[in-house]
Write a protein that binds this DNA or RNA. Structure first.
Length: 645
DNA sequence: GTTTCGGTTCTTTTT
DNA sequence: GAACCGAAAC
């Protein structure tokens, strides 16, 4: 049954979906059916007989990739199988797993996640005796290294700008960076940035590899193109060079990732780089009521350097967004809970409501109040699922079994034993010769000898839990190993260590189920570092993500929508965040972030502006309302005053 | 010499 | 929370 494109799409979308070959730029305002357009474009290509494996779909989150592939699958069925879809990091990783040898890496390199990269930087600084109180912390250093990598500029230059007048010895920063790079090589490890850097090196330095992929990918589609950085833009340009069938979709109004190197100049300059471009604009907004769109259009209009576009509403008039003045954070929390109850009484489902904020700690009082009043909610947490301590703990043994030279995994594993800290674990690692192969008969007695007495019994329990089939068995059933390790050791460890150990064990159960998706431990581990969260549809127990009230940062809410949206702490210094203002050239990105928050709402929008904020020491601080609510015409709001006695 | 523990401080955003 | 620091405990 052929797809009825005319029926499914409006004229703007249809034109973009049927865009001719060659470079295509789709400027898609919020809520105008960007995902729909991309999905139908994929279906349209497949219907025209393009093999799925010759299509590459790049996104910024795993979720976006899954969603689009699923929806495209719904349209054309099995035919989308084999399509390459995922994040830039994923695609680079996929290519590097085959070709990293040509860059001098082993093919089974490990990927360092944020935490691991950060501890490695810390280790390097300590070894160089540069870890004093006046020296920048590891996370700050890593952020500088990362930005430098992503914008392809020298570390020292970026560091000089970042630290400004602060008396930081740049030479020392450079030495830590050099040590960090060397350590990564020695560990056969890449951090997130290395995936992009090396992915691009592959194209720059290996013409054969580049030619292979240029040949394979007949059509390239990029979602959220405004968020690409230098590396990503060049990577795509090179890949598309031969066939030039490059379709990018984006919205410069929603560019909110410059702090990690994103540069929407890539988006604005696209027509200059591709003079034969075909351009489309999607401006018909299906999502929001006109009052919400009026506010969104007004708030963003003054931002500099952007493609002009105005969202047109198709929905009927409803009522104005509320601007709610409150006394303080507690009053805000009580108001929000009360408002949510009212929405629920009016027939809103909990999953139709979201509370958004600039930074996770802005929702502290609200989380307390929701818990106190027993209203269930889910937080898109600041800590990613796969970066939680207990998840990484149970994977440590698996990692070192798959890669016997994985030092970081070994140190983590041994650190779980009583009386073993970093020192002891490091010494043992050295005595074992930088490899750990517990299935070799001589290793067990040696290790027991090296361990402090208190650690011996727990280690015996772990060793006894090793699957009898040896490393091959582990490689083909990682879940089994995780299960055995948890039952034999980690359950008790968790019970002793964590207050909320029951929930953590549930997470582990979810993780074990999750491994079933992967054929080998290798596949599972190499993907793990790149995953942000178990997807909603995954069999993660306990949480029903779509039916619960959602608390989320604005960044994580991008691309989503709710019937009712409440935004917290619209105050100077908080939203816009003073730290962000200090780092950026101007306020325009914070304003775009506000725009993203506003455009998440379908029917109801509540903007909360408390008057005072508690500060440490028990004092209070007067808060100025955010420029984002004072700079637009007051007539766009319905003002409310709550809790002033 | 190491590990562990308790107190303190600070939380931007993420692949 | 969780990262850091200093001090007590092993």
């Amino acid at each position: 049954m052929p797809i009825d494109f005319e029926q499914a799409l409006n004229a703007e979308q249809l034109a973009a979906v049927r865009a001719p070959d060659g470079p295509v730029l789709v400027i898609a305002a919020a809520g105008t059916g960007k995902t729909r357009t991309l999905t139908y474009r994929v279906a349209w290509l497949v219907e025209r007989g393009i093999e799925a494996r010759r299509i590459l779909l790049l996104t910024f989150t795993n979720k976006a990739a899954h969603e689009m592939l699923e929806r495209a699958g719904g349209l054309v069925g099995e035919a989308v199988g084999g399509l390459w879809g995922g994040t830039f990091h994923h695609m680079a990783n996929r290519m590097l797993r085959r070709h990293a040898g040509e860059l001098g890496y082993k093919l089974d390199y490990t990927i360092l996640d944020q935490d691991e990269a950060c501890s490695l930087v810390r280790t390097c600084a300590r070894e160089l005796k540069l870890a004093g109180p006046e020296f920048p912390k590891a996370d700050v250093l890593l952020a500088v290294f990362s930005l430098a990598a992503n914008v392809e500029r020298p570390v020292l230059e970026v560091a000089a700008e970042h630290f400004g007048e602060h008396a930081v010895n740049l030479d020392e920063v450079g030495r830590v960076h050099a040590a960090y790079q060397a350590r990564k090589r020695a560990l056969h490890a890449m951090d997130f940035d290395d995936l992009l850097v090396n992915g691009l090196r592959l194209f720059r330095e290996q013409p054969g590899v580049l030619a292979h992929y240029q040949e394979q990918f007949q059509y390239i589609l990029v979602d959220e193109y405004q968020d690409t950085n230098t590396l990503q833009a060049e990577w795509v340009d090179r890949l598309a060079e031969r066939r030039r069938n490059l379709l990018v979709v984006g919205d410069d109004f929603q560019s909110i990732y410059s702090w990690r190197g994103a540069d929407f100049a890539n988006f604005l300059s696209f027509p200059r780089r591709y003079p034969d471009v075909t351009m489309f604009k999607l401006e018909t907004n299906y999502r929001s009521v006109p009052e919400v769109l009026d506010l969104a259009n007004a708030c963003i209009a003054g931002n500099p350097a952007q493609f002009q576009k105005t969202m047109h509403a198709v929905r009927r008039a409803h009522h104005k967004p509320a601007l709610v003045r409150l006394r303080d954070g507690d009053a805000q929390a009580r108001y929000v809970v009360e408002r949510i109850r009212q929405l629920l009484r009016q027939g809103c489902a909990p999953g139709d409501i979201a509370v958004l904020y600039r930074a996770h700690f802005h929702a502290m009082e609200l989380q307390l109040e929701l818990t106190r009043q027993q209203l269930p909610f889910v937080v898109t947490s600041g800590v990613r699922f796969f970066e939680q301590a207990h998840i990484k703990d149970v994977c440590a043994l698996l990692r070192v079994l798959v890669h016997p030279a994985d030092e970081l995994a070994f140190l983590r594993l041994l650190g779980l034993l009583p009386k073993v800290g970093a020192q002891t674990a490091g010494r043992i690692w050295g005595k074992l010769g930088g490899r750990f192969e517990p299935y070799r008969p001589e290793v067990e007695p040696l290790l027991l000898d090296l361990l402090p007495p208190a650690a011996r019994a727990p280690w015996r329990a772990i060793a006894a839990a090793l699957p009898p089939g040896g490393p091959e068995a582990v490689a083909h059933d990682p879940g089994e190993l995780l299960f055995r390790f948890t039952a034999a050791f980690y359950e008790q460890y968790a019970a002793r260590t964590f207050e909320n150990y029951a929930r953590r064990l549930e997470d582990i159960q979810g993780l074990i189920n999750f491994t079933a998706r992967y054929a080998t431990a290798e596949d599972f581990l190499s993907e793990m570092a790149l995953m942000t969260n178990l997807d909603a549809e995954t069999e993660a127990p306990g949480v029903n993500g779509t039916s619960a009230l959602k608390l989320s940062s604005v960044h994580q809410a991008k691309g989503l929508e709710w019937k009712a949206v409440l935004v917290l702490w619209l105050n100077e210094g908080l939203f816009p965040s003073h730290r962000a203002l200090a780092e950026a050239a101007d306020e325009s990105e914070e304003r775009r972030l506000f725009y993203v928050a506003v455009t998440r709402a379908r029917d109801e929008l509540y903007l909360c502006v408390p008057e005072v904020r508690r500060v440490r020491g028990g004092g209070v601080m007067y808060c100025v309302p955010s420029r984002f609510v004072t700079e637009v015409p007051a007539g766009l709001f319905a003002e409310e005053y709550v809790g002033f006695g």
